[in-house]
Amino acid sequence: MIRYALACAHGHGFEGWFGSSEAYDEQVASGLVECPMCGAREVSKQIMAPAVAGAKKRDPAPAEPSQAMMAEAMSRVRRHVEENFDYLGDGFVDEARAIHQGRAEDRGIFGEASPAQVRELAEEGVRVAAMPPAPPKKSDIN
Rank of each mutant, 00 (worst) to 15 (best):
V77I: 07
H100Y: 11
Y87S: 11
A130Q: 12
M74S: 14
G108L: 07
R76A: 13
R58K: 13
A63Y: 09
E112Q: 03
R76C: 12
R58T: 15
D59L: 10
A116N: 03
V93P: 00
A71L: 04
E72H: 11
R103N: 08
R119G: 00
F92C: 04
H80G: 06
G89P: 06
R79S: 10
A63K: 14
A130N: 07
A96I: 03
I99E: 05
E112V: 15
L121H: 00
G91D: 11
V81S: 14
M69A: 14
Q117W: 04
P65F: 06
G125C: 01
R103Y: 02
Y87T: 09
E123M: 06
F92M: 00
A61C: 11
A116K: 04
G102I: 08
M69C: 14
R58Y: 07
E120M: 01
A61W: 09
D86L: 02
E95H: 01
A96W: 12
G102Q: 08
G108V: 15
A98P: 10
E123N: 08
Q67K: 13
A122T: 12
G111L: 01
E112L: 14
E120Y: 04
A129P: 11
P60T: 10
E83M: 15
A116Q: 14
A130C: 08
D90R: 02
F92L: 03
I109T: 06
A61G: 03
P115S: 11
N84Q: 13
G102A: 10
N84D: 01
G111S: 03
R76M: 09
N84H: 01
R107T: 09
A116L: 04
E82G: 11
N84M: 01
A73Y: 01
V81T: 02
Q117S: 06
S75K: 15
G108S: 15
H80S: 15
E120T: 13
E64H: 11
R103G: 05
A130V: 10
E124I: 06
Y87G: 04
L88N: 02
Y87K: 03
F92N: 09
R58N: 02
H100V: 04
V126A: 12
S114E: 12
G108Y: 15
Q117K: 09
A68Q: 15
R107H: 08
L88P: 01
M70D: 15
F92R: 00
R127Q: 08
I109W: 00
A73R: 02
G91S: 08
E120H: 14
Q117N: 07
F85G: 03
I99S: 01
P65I: 12
D59C: 03
E83W: 14
E95A: 09
M69K: 15
E95Q: 06
H100I: 08
V126I: 05
S66T: 12
V128M: 09
A71G: 13
M69G: 12
Q101W: 11
P62F: 15
